[in-house]
Computed example of a mutant assay.
Amino acid sequence: MKNCKRRLTAIILLLPLLVIAQTDTTNYIKKKSTVIFPVVARSIETGFSFGVAASTTFHLSKNDTATRTSNIQALALYSIKQQFVAAIAGAQYTKNESYIFNETMSFSSFPDKFWGLGKYALASNEESYKFQQYYINLQALKNIGHHFFIGSLLEIQNLMAIDYTKGGIFDLDNVSGRHPYFIAGIGGSLTYDNRSNAFSPQKGLFAQVYFNHFDTYLGSDYIYSNVVLDIRKYISLKQKVLALQAYYSGNYGDAIPLRSLASLGGSNRMRGYYEGRFRDKQLITLQSELRFPVYKRLSSVAFGAVGDVGNRLSDFSPFDCKYSYGTGLRFAVNKTERLNIRVDYGFGSKGNSGLYFQLGEAF
Rank of each mutant, 00 (worst) to 15 (best):
N3R: 12
T9N: 11
L13D: 06
L18Y: 12
T26Q: 12
Y28F: 12
Y28W: 10
K31R: 15
V40D: 02
S43N: 15
H59I: 00
N63S: 12
T65C: 00
T67C: 00
R68L: 15
Q73P: 04
E97W: 02
F107K: 11
A123K: 14
S124L: 04
N125T: 10
E126P: 04
E127M: 12
Q133Y: 05
N143T: 10
G151C: 03
L159I: 11
A161G: 02
N174H: 09
G185H: 08
I186G: 09
T191C: 04
N197C: 11
P201D: 12
K203R: 13
F206Q: 00
L218W: 14
I223C: 06
S225L: 07
V227I: 14
A243Y: 08
A243N: 06
L244N: 12
Y247A: 04
Y252P: 02
Y252V: 11
A262M: 02
S263H: 07
G265T: 08
M270R: 02
E275T: 01
R279F: 07
K281C: 04
V294I: 15
Y295T: 12
A302Y: 07
T327V: 15
G328E: 07
R330M: 01
F331W: 13
A332D: 04
E337Y: 10
R338S: 10
V343Y: 13
K350G: 04
S353M: 10
L359R: 05
G360H: 07
